[in-house]
Deep mutational scan, measured.
Amino acid sequence: MPSETPQAEVGPTGCPHRSGPHSAKGSLEKGSPEDKEAKEPLWIRPDAPSRCTWQLGRPASESPHHHTAPAKSPKILPDILKKIGDTPMVRINKIGKKFGLKCELLAKCEFFNAGGSVKDRISLRMIEDAERDGTLKPGDTIIEPTSGNTGIGLALAAAVRGYRCIIVMPEKMSSEKVDVLRALGAEIVRTPTNARFDSPESHVGVAWRLKNEIPNSHILDQYRNASNPLAHYDTTADEILQQCDGKLDMLVASVGTGGTITGIARKLKEKCPGCRIIGVDPEGSILAEPEELNQTEQTTYEVEGIGYDFIPTVLDRTVVDKWFKSNDEEAFTFARMLIAQEGLLCGGSAGSTVAVAVKAAQELQEGQRCVVILPDSVRNYMTKFLSDRWMLQKGFLKEEDLTEKKPWWWHLRVQELGLSAPLTVLPTITCGHTIEILREKGFDQAPVVDEAGVILGMVTLGNMLSSLLAGKVQPSDQVGKVIYKQFKQIRLTDTLGRLSHILEMDHFALVV
C-alpha cells in the first residue's frame, strides 16, 4: 500500500459497493488471473465517493441489488447463522422517566444476534452475496479491517462455511474481542490505534497488504460494500417497522461504517417519512454534520465500534436529520445504567446512543415513540467499562463513588512517597548505550525526554532486548525507535489509591 493515498477510480455505471474482489474501477472485475494482476490496485480507499443510485421515491424494481426479506425461524435451526436477525424490541421503562421523557422509549437489542452484535447481519450478508456472485469459493481466505464486531461476525460465518479468516484490528480494541476471535479460529493482526486510516500501518493498510500477498484472499470491505446497508434496509428496518406496527417518530443510532443508519433510515424514509433520524458520533470522530460539531482538541476516545477519521463510502449522511456528539463518560455511564436499571447487557456504544436519545427525544410528546439501536453486548468489555477499576483509572468514576473498604494508605498523596527525580535518556542515544546505562543503574525503564525536557515516551529494558533479539533494531539504532509513546501519567497530588489502580493494569506510571 502506498504512503500517498491515490484516488480510487470510478467506473461508468453500476453501484460502487459490489461485493467481491475490487477492480481499479471499484466494481467486480472478471477475466484471467493475468488481467486481474495487471488491473487490481494495491488498495482502494474506504472513503471513495459513493456511486449508489438510491433515491427517495425511486421504484424498488430499479435497484441493481439482490434483495432479501426477513424469514421466520424454524423450530430447529440448521446452523447458528440462522440465529442472525429477528432481534427483540424491548421497552426501556426507567431511564426515559428518569430523564423526563414523555414518549415511549424502545430498544432494538442487536446483541441477541448469534455473534453478539449488529455486525453479524452485514457479515453474513457480505459472505452470502460474495458466494452468490462467485467471488468467494471453498478454501478462500477472508481478510477484514475491523474494530472487532464485524470480525467476530465474519469469523463466526467463516467457521460454519469453512473459510480461512484473518482479522486486522487496532490495538485499542478489547482483549475479549481478541479472545472470541481466536476461539472462532480467526487469525488476528493488531495495528497502532493512532495510525491514520490511509497510513500503511493502519488496520485498513495492513489488511490490503495481506490481501496482495495471500492468494485467493478477499477483503469484503464493510466500508464500501453495498451488502452492509442492504442488510439493514432489507431486514433490520423491516423488523423495526413490523415490531412497531409502522408507528415510530424517531430513530437514534450510533454511527461507525454508517451501514446501520443508512440502511434503516432509507427504508424508514420510504415507509415512515415523518420519522426523524438521529445520528450519534463520538467526540474525536469526524462523521457528524455540520462540520463545526467535529471541532475539538480530542483525537482519541475509548468507546469502541463507532466514529472514524474518514467518511466511509457506505455512509449516506443525507438521510440523517440531526447529529449529536457523545463523550466517553456519558457513554459508559449510560451503558452501566442500562445494565443495572433495565437488565440490558449492552456495550458502550449503546450507552452513547441512549445518552443522546434522552436529549433528542425531549421534543417528542406522549403517545409518540423513539427507537434506539443497541449494537453489541457487554461480553466484549468485561475488563473495560464493566470494571470499576478501569473506570477509575480512566477518570470516568471517582473514588467516592465506590463504597468498598480501602487499605490505610489509600488516600495518601503520591508526594508522600518522597520520590527522587528519575533517570532520563535522550532519544538520540543508541539502544546499546541505553541498555548499558539501565543495567549500570539497576533500572528496568526510563523516560525519554528531548533537550527541552519534554517527555516523549518510555523505554524499557525488556522491550529493547526483545527488539534486538527479533532483529527489529540494532544496538547502533537510536533509542527513539523503541519508545512507548502511550503511558499513564500521575500527579504528586493524586492518591496512592489512584496509582494502585493504574499499576494493576500497566507496568509503570510516570509522575509529573
Score class of each variant (00 low, 15 high):
4 E>N: 12
6 P>C: 10
6 P>T: 11
11 G>L: 07
12 P>T: 10
14 G>L: 13
14 G>S: 07
18 R>N: 11
18 R>H: 15
19 S>F: 10
19 S>H: 09
26 G>V: 14
27 S>L: 14
31 G>M: 06
32 S>A: 12
37 E>P: 13
38 A>Q: 06
40 E>H: 11
42 L>Q: 11
43 W>N: 08
51 R>Y: 09
52 C>M: 00
53 T>E: 09
54 W>V: 06
55 Q>P: 06
58 R>C: 09
58 R>F: 05
58 R>V: 06
76 I>L: 15
77 L>I: 05
78 P>I: 05
84 I>N: 08
86 D>G: 11
86 D>T: 10
87 T>Y: 00
95 I>S: 02
97 K>G: 14
101 L>A: 02
101 L>C: 01
103 C>T: 02
104 E>F: 02
110 E>M: 01
115 G>Q: 08
117 S>W: 03
120 D>I: 07
121 R>L: 01
125 R>I: 03
126 M>Y: 06
130 A>R: 07
139 G>R: 14
146 T>A: 04
148 G>T: 01
148 G>K: 06
155 A>E: 02
160 V>A: 10
162 G>W: 03
164 R>T: 07
164 R>M: 00
164 R>W: 06
168 V>I: 07
171 E>T: 05
180 V>A: 09
180 V>C: 07
181 L>H: 00
182 R>E: 07
185 G>H: 00
189 V>Q: 06
190 R>M: 05
192 P>S: 10
193 T>V: 12
194 N>M: 09
201 E>W: 14
203 H>A: 09
207 A>R: 00
208 W>A: 14
211 K>R: 12
214 I>T: 03
217 S>Q: 06
217 S>F: 06
218 H>S: 03
218 H>G: 02
218 H>E: 07
222 Q>T: 02
223 Y>Q: 02
223 Y>H: 01
225 N>G: 00
226 A>M: 10
226 A>G: 06
228 N>V: 00
228 N>W: 00
229 P>F: 02
230 L>E: 05
233 Y>F: 12
233 Y>C: 01
235 T>E: 14
237 A>Q: 07
238 D>T: 04
238 D>C: 09
239 E>C: 00
243 Q>Y: 08
246 G>D: 05
247 K>D: 03
261 I>Q: 00
262 T>A: 14
265 A>S: 15
271 K>W: 08
272 C>A: 13
273 P>L: 11
274 G>L: 09
